[in-house]
Nucleic acid binder design. Sequence first.
DNA 1: TGATATAGTAAAGTATGTTTACCAAAATAT
DNA 2: ATATTTTGGTAAACATACTTTACTATATCA
Lengths: 151, 151
Amino acid sequence: MKKLQQKSIELRDNNLGRLFQRAGRAYSVRALSLLHERGFSDVKLSHSALFANLDLEGTQITVIAERAGMTKQAMGQLANDLEAKGYINKIKDPNDKRAYIIRFTKLGEKALHAAYDIKVIIEKEFEDLLGSKNVANLQKGLRKLIESYTN
Amino acid sequence: MKKLQQKSIELRDNNLGRLFQRAGRAYSVRALSLLHERGFSDVKLSHSALFANLDLEGTQITVIAERAGMTKQAMGQLANDLEAKGYINKIKDPNDKRAYIIRFTKLGEKALHAAYDIKVIIEKEFEDLLGSKNVANLQKGLRKLIESYTN
DNA sequence: TGATATAGTAAAGTATGTTTACCAAAATAT
DNA sequence: ATATTTTGGTAAACATACTTTACTATATCA
């Protein structure tokens, strides 16, 4: 049997789970930093749960929450925060008096454009570093793993 | 210029940052579930910051905290929690009366063995899914990205 | 020996959620 | 049509995993 010392080192230094998380963290730190540089300095990482699940034609809070895999209460708080910061509007749903429709403001749309530009920039950086074929394979592998483990 | 609708979809569905984070989450959910199945049901994800940075011969709290990139206060809390649960001991440092040395208990070592087994199991699952060469490339790519972005 | 740095703790605050409990409106069932 | 149940949303309390501020005791340096 392998020595515990060796196992400890391999857990620490040679662990795919840790690599995923560190890469994710590196990505989001970089992306958020570029977004702040472009003037959207009050956007936080947690806001992406709303941004990423909001349709351009507008979406109900409950629907966004379900897509993001979180409670409607938590999503309601994100919505209030982003509304106060001017990125979205909460409009009363004309078809359901209980509900609100969340829509991007002009500022929110600008932030979305910027976020897309940043995504492209970071992907370019990755391709310069690894080669575009390797980035494509990385993406394919991650997708396959996620699909397999979240079903 | 690409339509905002299209940009929104690509940000949502075709975003490496989100893939990293989802893969990391899938890994840790799987690993923690297997660890709980093996009887270590009171171990939490946050504990890994201590486990992963504790040398077998024992390590000072401040050193573990620095390795983990967090404050010594936060690490002190993890240490107290894991001590209460029986995974580590806090021993007075004979060379420094201010300091404590953290060491694994027998139970802690058993958990470490289990964690290693689980790492091997999950890697095997990944290789069955993607092929061992692709897993090796994945690992290599992630390492390269992390190294480049955290320096 | 006196000033400063370091190991650790304590308590309060912050970020990002969940749980429990509730209301009003909508959908369904009889 | 009305009673029942479900759904959209909010509010408040709690949980987790930290950081910040403030402190004590010991160690180190000048």
